[in-house]
Design a protein around this nucleic acid. Structure first.
Lengths: 217, 217
DNA sequence: TTCTGTCTACATACGTGTAGGTAGGGGCTC
DNA sequence: GAGCCCCTACCTACACGTATGTAGACAGAA
């Protein structure tokens, strides 16, 4: 990629708007389903002008995904940093992750799309950005178990189920009755509560299960 | 749907093979991504011959989805029939559903694809076949709660999370390390155990949590 | 200051591949 | 020989990508 160090503000602005538009379109339609024409229309330029900023459709696809994951990843990573009581951290991490996913619905859609479409470029990005977070989550559970705080359960599948449940919620929630959009804050709150209940109970040791502590909101 | 009652065995056979091929292709690539040419190649006929059996691509798409869901649905429905101890039934239902999903990987892919692609025909089929099963699952949880056997947790989100976790497992499992295909029976067994642990603990009342009963395999 | 050359950031018009769908013919079975 | 089943040979639409043109900004020299 060239330096682009001396380009005009207008060009930078256009390029960003192209990525923003592409992000929404790709998240909704996937690589083959997305049409460059619609992206151009949304930006308000002619379609061939997209090829001035990006070599081809795939380059734009990669840029859109990079942006979303690069914006989301640090939030996840920070909230996953070790911090005292594992149950308190579980609560904190879950709320942070779900909050970010709620305000960036493209993220969940892109991950889901990548899983079904398997576009190599997207797979690579997911592996690069998401896999380390999964690994951190697994390590977190395993650490809590080693310290005797968390109950015995497969750390990887526990993590996969938790992430998976959240993904499905944001991608498919509105398909099922009782209908609700993942943009409905009340619905998100109820979902968060339920997911946390499942996580807490799954990881609670049998002694702790007798008096489940209420966590801070 | 026309009667097709007096066609030859050869035609019926071809038609079935077309549906089988289409099922795999559509599950993998979705409606726009799937190519009629590849379906024809897999059957061993020329592409235009597909249009003898099906009016157009969408008709074939519908037929393929109908077949998968119609084959899967009764298994789910039967295992969801009321039967004694809710925890025993939870165990039975979970194992049955996961077993079916394991041997029909197209099912999970089609549901996942429908959620992201939102093709109207597929959405309609999912709503017709899957929604009633979700409703049954929710009613099952709610009934167990009314009888005081299951703990208090949102029945809908509990169901959504359970189904979602299973879907994600079969669709995205192989993307994540430690790598494994959902066709690996050992991996499926470990996943089943973990999902059941989470379900059981989420629904166990605080009294019951002290001595979690081991369920039959 | 003004003219000139060059670069950026678009637009217009076109080439090209590909995929869904159609028309009509022919072989095979009953 | 009649009808079902599948073939070859098209047509049409669409979407990515390219070739080429151009308006405006900017730098530097006269």
């Amino acid at each position: 990629m060239p330096s682009r160090s001396r380009s005009t503000p207008a060009a930078d602005d256009t390029r960003e708007r192209v990525i923003d538009a592409a992000q929404a379109i790709f998240a909704r339609d996937g690589f083959v389903g997305a049409k460059m024409q619609e992206i151009a229309d949304r930006v308000g330029i002619q379609r061939p002008s997209l090829f001035y900023h990006f070599k081809n459709k795939e380059a734009l696809f990669v840029a859109a995904h990079e942006q979303v994951f690069a914006r989301i990843e640090p939030v996840f990573r920070e909230s996953l940093a070790p911090n005292g009581d594992p149950f308190v951290q579980l609560d904190r991490v879950s709320r942070a992750v779900l909050a970010v996913m709620a305000e960036e619905p493209d993220f969940a859609r892109m991950v889901a799309r990548t899983s079904v479409d398997r576009h190599p470029a997207a797979v690579k990005i997911v592996r690069t950005y998401l896999q380390p977070l999964i690994d951190l989550s697994v390590a977190f559970v395993r650490d809590g178990q080693r310290r005797g705080v968390f109950a015995d359960i497969d750390p990887f599948f526990f993590t996969l189920n938790s992430w998976g449940a959240a993904l499905v919620y944001f991608v498919a929630r509105d398909l099922l009755a009782p209908a609700a959009k993942p943009t409905d804050a009340r619905d998100v709150a109820r979902f968060t509560t339920t997911l946390l209940q499942m996580g807490n109970r799954a990881l609670a040791t049998s002694e702790r299960r007798r008096t489940p502590a209420r966590r801070a909101s």
